[in-house]
């Protein structure tokens, strides 16, 4: 590669400062003792204490977590099925419609998806609550899962599956003992993506949630509409910490497995 110039170094430094400074300021000021957000009034963890004493936030967090777990699991099952059918299903009637329906929610503005789901739930008389949020999130996130899983399915060697079938596996056995273990990393990252999208979603949830089922993003949004609040800074810091921990751990595990595989291959080649 060519020389790494001063221009490159400057643009990288400024770029990453721009990406990370706002979050860094948010984290630092969540430990601010005073109520005024811009004036430093000594280190304190009092906003964290207040956050954990606020029942409304804890309830919202619990709702968000349950919705996230349920919808991402459902979305992973449905998305994997859809990906399998699209990549391996051969030709069938309505294949184009199906791949269109799998692609559209990804690019469709969320306000439209939210409004249309709300109108559906009203039309069929389904009360808005936890169930409707789970249905909305599953529909939205299964499309992302199917994108992730099908990109893995495309590259994977179909003859392995055929060999299993030749050796007497039933199609189910072949799927669970050959295909699934191979595509497992993609299925897991699909699940994580679905879970993160569900935890983060404000727009769909605002349309389809009822009064008894406020999610964390809805709660945060209504709190920050009125201005900056130190309690929300504390909550944001916790959420940023969880995500950073998850992403860094995942990439370390991934790196280790890649190095291990390379090492194994080298040893196999040497022997």
């Amino acid at each position: 590669m060519r020389r790494f110039s001063w221009f490159n170094a400057t643009s990288l430094t400024l770029g990453f400062a721009f990406l990370y400074l706002p979050m860094l300021i948010l984290i630092i000021y969540s430990f601010n003792g005073g109520r005024n957000v811009a004036i430093w009034a000594g280190f304190s963890t009092k906003w964290y204490g207040e956050l954990f004493r606020d029942q409304a936030f804890l309830d919202a967090a619990w709702v968000t977590l349950r919705v996230g777990l349920m919808s991402s699991t459902l979305a992973t099952i449905l998305g994997t099925m859809a990906a399998y059918v699209i990549v391996r299903g051969g030709r069938f009637k309505g294949r184009t419609v199906m791949s269109g329906m799998l692609y559209a929610p990804i690019v469709m503005p969320e306000v439209i998806t939210g409004l249309s789901l709300l109108l559906l739930f009203i039309a069929i008389g389904l009360d808005r609550g936890l169930v409707t949020i789970v249905l909305a999130h599953t529909t939205f996130t299964m499309c992302f899962v199917s994108v992730v899983v099908s990109s893995r399915l495309v590259t994977f060697d179909q003859s392995l599956e055929e060999a299993a079938l030749d050796l007497g596996c039933t199609p189910w056995d072949a799927f669970f003992s050959v295909t699934l273990p191979i595509i497992a990393p993609a299925v897991i990252s699909g699940w994580l993506l679905a879970f993160t999208l569900s935890l983060d979603d404000l727009v769909l949830a605002s349309f389809v949630s009822g009064p008894s089922s406020t999610t964390l993003p809805i709660k945060i949004f209504s709190a920050v509409r009125l201005g900056v609040s130190p309690k929300i800074n504390a909550l944001s810091t916790i959420m940023i910490a969880i995500v950073a921990f998850g992403v860094i751990t995942a990439s370390l595990i991934n790196k280790r497995s890649v190095t291990k595989r390379l090492k194994d291959e080298q040893e196999a080649a040497a022997s």
């Binding site: 948010l26 900056v228 959420m239 940023i240």
Partner: peptide
């Protein structure tokens, strides 16, 4: 990281 939080961080 949450989209909402990243937007919110600019409010402060």
């Amino acid at each position: 990281t949450s989209f909402l939080i990243r937007v919110y961080s600019w409010m402060g």
